[in-house]
Design a protein around this nucleic acid. Sequence first.
DNA 1: AGGGATATCTAAGCAGTGCTTAGACTGGCA
DNA 2: TGCCAGTCTAAGCACTGCTTAGATATCCCT
Lengths: 219, 219
Amino acid sequence: MRQGVDQHADSGVDPGGRPYHHGALRARLLAAGLDLVAAEGVGALSLRRLAREAGVSSGAPYHHFPDRAALFAAIVVDGHDLLFTRLDAARAGSSDAVATLCELLVAYAGFAADHPAHMRVMLRPELAEPAAHPEVTAAGVRPIELLRSVVLAAQDEGAVPPGDPEPVLHMFWSLAVGYVTLWLDGPVEARCAVLGTTPDEMIRRVASAVEELLRRPPA
Amino acid sequence: MRQGVDQHADSGVDPGGRPYHHGALRARLLAAGLDLVAAEGVGALSLRRLAREAGVSSGAPYHHFPDRAALFAAIVVDGHDLLFTRLDAARAGSSDAVATLCELLVAYAGFAADHPAHMRVMLRPELAEPAAHPEVTAAGVRPIELLRSVVLAAQDEGAVPPGDPEPVLHMFWSLAVGYVTLWLDGPVEARCAVLGTTPDEMIRRVASAVEELLRRPPA
DNA sequence: AGGGATATCTAAGCAGTGCTTAGACTGGCA
DNA sequence: TGCCAGTCTAAGCACTGCTTAGATATCCCT
């Protein structure tokens, strides 16, 4: 029926027409999905619920996303873009490679703090079914390559062990992913509360400890 | 009906009786759940499916686990026990604190390799709803306290920055959780395949890089 | 301006899920 | 023996992802 039309006319900020939500439905679903993930976690996100909140039928989202995983995939691609921008800015603002490595760590956590919904989805790759949505895997390449280049620079400075950069790369990659995982999942937040600090402050202290190690004279 | 009785009599290794699965159903659900998580991931686990595979009705599991989260909580508690045992053995087999820290890292990854189903569930705390099942949070305390004691010992040796041990603790905690997350989620496995190595070997090389940093003379 | 292709949406339905309820059955204990 | 507590079945509610058939709106093209 014209239920969709009426509901849109009721709630629309543009009463001039635009039935069937026009091309705005896709963007609206994405935005509502991010809000929902931020508020109640990834488990609470269902296409039916997003459709209900948007005032459309439960089948409507499938014209914009082939399946639920495709919506998650769109979030992941968007998130990796935002993340790369942020990491790149952190790199530009640092002096030497050691400082850059530490700033990348802090920037990664800062991104998680500012875009928790994006990060929550990015940390659960199975949600986006990367096997079915290859753009997800491709989107994650740029941040890693950025990190790799900084590790190589740190090797040139003698700050990290020479030779194959991959172990050191995996070390920083794991450190960043692990801290943010523990933050968003709760344990770090809980422990910081007991310690009388915040996760935001703690990652900076972790980065300082790392920097202290990297600034030691190589044996 | 006596459908349950018949099915059990058909498939039972103990045809002498034991209708209604006796007390074995709980253990059987747990074991089948771990198998399912290992084979198809946490998303594939449903109480209805476990019940089907065990040959009982879909309501039967609820007499052993109040809800799905309670089954995950049981897995997490069991997993933290196994993990602590393994970490404790690694500590006992190492010489100084620096070696111990590196061995803990390798042992953590080794646990993930040997008990991937346990680890997958442990890495997703929301599955066990820790707010509703406090034993989950309690079970995670021992491994962290073990790590903390080793970090303190490393401070005594001058291997890590002195003062508050929490930043260094969070560093190793994040490193371990991050690496295992990236391993079980796929990215590390994929990258190692390209590099012509294995995640098992890579974590050992990461640990070596960490050791090299820790063995540098403090500034 | 009219007309047809196309994108968008609705309504209805299937199979699966977590969880609840009422009732039936069993084993063990007094 | 009789009864009770623990265990299970059967049925049902509300929710989910996803599909299908059909209706409606928009846009472009002659």
